[in-house]
């Protein structure tokens, strides 16, 4: 009897499986772009800070300040979509039963996480475009097209380590406690990585531990992209890639165990 039932399993054509991944990503993007509680802070915090400190007050700190702060606030803007869009939303959905329903439905493996990743990439792309527009049209920053392109690509891909970190946090805390925990990571890391004040004016100890934070490495790369870097690239890329892989692996193990 079971053989008949086995044969009778309907076959899912590869094109339909791909379509399922696309639909999942589309639904994730739509639902967050329609959620002002997520979208507005994510877009406004980095751009308003940059407008205030980079554009209006920037020139008081020297001619390179708007450029320097484009990198810092750009990095700051990359962190939120990863940590909140990925981490907090996953933590909440583990609690509300949505993830359980998705696991019961024949959703292709990983479609849910890939969908969230696409959403985070899209939101970061919007943040990057806003920041570049403010810098180029209001901040008087001059960058050749190649540097603009590098900065944009770096920002978009730069969300991945933070999405991975958010994923990891979401496996530790679920439900309403998650936003608080994420903020405890997000704001101190931004400060300790030198996104608000240059590391050079901070105590030596804080400067020494800065390489522990993923945001520090992304910020160094962003400074390089706008032409203020120290030429070191691959160390930072390797650090970010390492963080991403490590967080994803630990999170995947925890999710498999605890659901």
């Amino acid at each position: 009897m079971t053989t008949i039932d086995r044969i009778a399993h309907p076959v899912m054509r590869p094109a339909r499986v791909v379509a399922a991944y696309v639909e999942e990503a589309r639904a994730e993007c739509l639902r967050y772009l329609r959620n002002p509680g997520f979208l507005l802070p994510t877009l406004l915090f980095p751009s308003v800070f940059y407008l205030m400190f980079g554009v209006f007050l920037g020139h008081a700190n020297g001619p390179d300040a708007p450029k320097y702060l484009l990198a810092s606030y750009g990095t700051f803007g990359v962190m939120a979509p990863g940590l909140f869009g990925f981490g907090v939303s996953l933590a909440l959905e583990r609690d509300t039963g949505l993830l359980t329903l998705k696991r019961a439905l024949p959703m292709p493996p990983g479609a849910y996480l890939l969908g969230k990743m696409c959403m985070a990439l899209l939101v970061v792309a919007i943040v990057a475009i806003i920041m570049l527009c403010l810098a180029l049209f209001l901040g008087g920053v001059h960058l050749p097209p190649s540097r603009i392109a590098t900065f944009f690509v770096l920002e978009v891909l730069g969300v991945l380590p933070f999405a991975a970190l958010g994923l990891f946090i979401a496996t530790l805390v679920k439900g309403q406690g998650a936003p608080g925990v994420v903020n405890l990571v997000y704001l101190p890391m931004a400060f300790l990585s030198g996104l608000w004040f240059p590391l050079s004016i901070m105590p030596g100890f804080l400067q020494a531990i800065a390489p522990l934070w993923p945001a520090y490495h992304l910020n160094r790369l962003a400074l390089g992209a706008v032409g203020l870097g120290d030429g070191v690239v691959w160390t930072h890329v390797a650090a970010l890639a390492g963080y991403t892989v490590a967080f994803v692996l630990i999170a995947a193990r925890r999710l498999r165990r605890h659901g």
Binding site: L30, R31, T100, L101
Partner: peptide, 10 residues
Amino acid sequence: LQAATLPATL
């Protein structure tokens, strides 16, 4: 499933 909360904005 009774317990599932679906995305409110979809």
